[in-house]
Simulated assay, not measured.
Amino acid sequence: MLSRRTALGSALAATLATRFAGFAAAQDGAFRFGIVADPQYAPVPPNLASGRYYANSLWKMQEAVAELNRHDLKFVATLGDIIDRHWESFGHVLPVYDGLKHPKVFVLGNHDYEVGREFLRSVVRTVGMPNAYYDFAGGGYRFVVIDGNDVSTFAPPVGDPRRELAAERLARLKASGAPNAQSWNGSLSDEQFAWLQRTLDAARTARENVVVLGHYPVFPADKHNMWDSQRIVDLLTSYDNFVAYLCGHNHAGNYGEIGGRHFINFRGMVDTPTTTAYSIVEMHPDRLRIEGFGREESRSYAIRARA
């Protein structure tokens, strides 16, 4: 007999299993998509010390869905930490996402695995992702979703060799005094890193620009960055068609630029009792424009022409 939790996961997976089919840009090359970072919903009291109001993200997400539905968007991406903890939290917040009229794109964060060991293998399926890392095309772009939880101390199932590898990587970083040597960060497996390079190669061959979506920052240096952030930055910036890296995890937000390539850290929705945070990103041939809502600021960045 199915338990209540198992039934919940199966039902939600069926509800969110529609795959993203791609899209075309407008005649002027423009298109728009939505971004949400770190709703981190859970039906628990707030953490006043950190200013995180977990339960309030339910109504914040409801308001965001209503506003995003007013716009012509190609998709809405959530950059990880859909929930803060507890398997049942998915059952509260994912139905809110069902109200979106746009395709849903998910990235997973560290808190999405705070669900109990018996459910670790079910998280990807539950949110309807095709895989923990994947890519899709639209509007002349290749969108690449990476999984920074791949080699971590919390996401791989117990007994998976990636846990041992994660412990080794974290120990080496701590020994070096790296500020991002934190147990709540993670890294890519070598297998995923090779996949990322192949995907970038394919995008370059297809004359597609690239936007990478991740949970963890990789630049500029910060305690929230992925353990292997430097090799990721080196790889991405070696491609002339790489445009931007979009992430969450650092709820305060951040920004960095390397040779006209943009590393944009969006602010967390969960923070503050009454103010939300989400965005609409508008892509043009020569610029990337962000329309911020709530705590998220509006700004614009030039897109570097390919060589």
Results as ranks from 00 to 15, higher is better:
Phe33Gln: 00
Gly128Asp: 05
Ala21Asn: 14
Tyr278Phe: 15
Pro220Lys: 02
Ser50Ile: 05
Phe119Pro: 07
Leu120Pro: 06
Gly128His: 11
Gly248Pro: 04
Gly294Val: 13
Tyr54Phe: 15
Thr276Cys: 06
Glu296Asn: 08
Thr274Met: 12
Thr274Glu: 14
Arg207Cys: 10
Arg289Leu: 06
Glu118Ile: 07
Val127His: 08
Val123Gln: 02
Asn209Trp: 09
Gly140Asn: 11
Gly256Glu: 12
Asp98Asn: 06
Thr126Trp: 09
Arg198Ser: 11
Met1Ile: 08
Phe263Tyr: 04
Tyr113Gly: 05
Gly259Ile: 13
Val124Cys: 00
Arg304Gly: 00
Gly138Asn: 08
Asn209Val: 01
Gly292Leu: 02
Pro273Ala: 14
Ala277Asp: 02
Gly148Arg: 00
Gly139Val: 12
Val212Trp: 09
His284Asp: 02
Asp222Ala: 10
Asp190Gln: 06
Gly138Gln: 06
Ile82Met: 12
Gln230Pro: 10
Gly109Cys: 07
Leu165Tyr: 09
Ile146Cys: 04
Glu291Ser: 11
Gly148Lys: 04
Val281Trp: 01
Lys223Ile: 11
Ala155Ile: 01
Pro285Tyr: 03
His224Trp: 15
Leu94Ser: 05
Arg261Glu: 02
Ala171Pro: 03
Tyr255Cys: 01
Arg304Val: 00
Ala305Ser: 06
Arg70Ala: 14
Val76His: 11
Ala13Thr: 06
Lys174His: 12
His224Val: 10
Val211Gln: 03
Ile146Tyr: 04
Glu164Lys: 13
Asn265Cys: 15
Arg299Gly: 07
Thr153Lys: 05
Arg19Tyr: 12
His111Trp: 10
Arg163Gly: 12
Val212Leu: 08
Met269Gly: 01
Pro43Cys: 05
His92Asn: 06
Gly51Tyr: 15
His251Trp: 15
His251Phe: 14
Trp184Gly: 03
Ala21Lys: 14
Leu200Asp: 08
Lys174Thr: 13
Phe106Lys: 00
Phe263Ala: 01
Leu196Phe: 13
Gly294Ser: 15
Leu120Gly: 00
Ala171Leu: 10
Gly29Tyr: 08
Ala221Glu: 10
Asp271Lys: 08
Thr274Val: 15
Ile290Asp: 01
Ala66Met: 07
Ile83Thr: 04
Phe266Tyr: 14
Thr272Gln: 03
Gly34Phe: 01
Arg121Met: 11
Gly22Thr: 15
Leu170Arg: 04
Ala66Glu: 04
Ala14Ser: 09
Gly22Glu: 15
Gly51Glu: 04
Ala277Val: 07
Arg204Lys: 08
Arg267Ala: 14
Asn149Ser: 07
Met129Arg: 05
Gly139Pro: 13
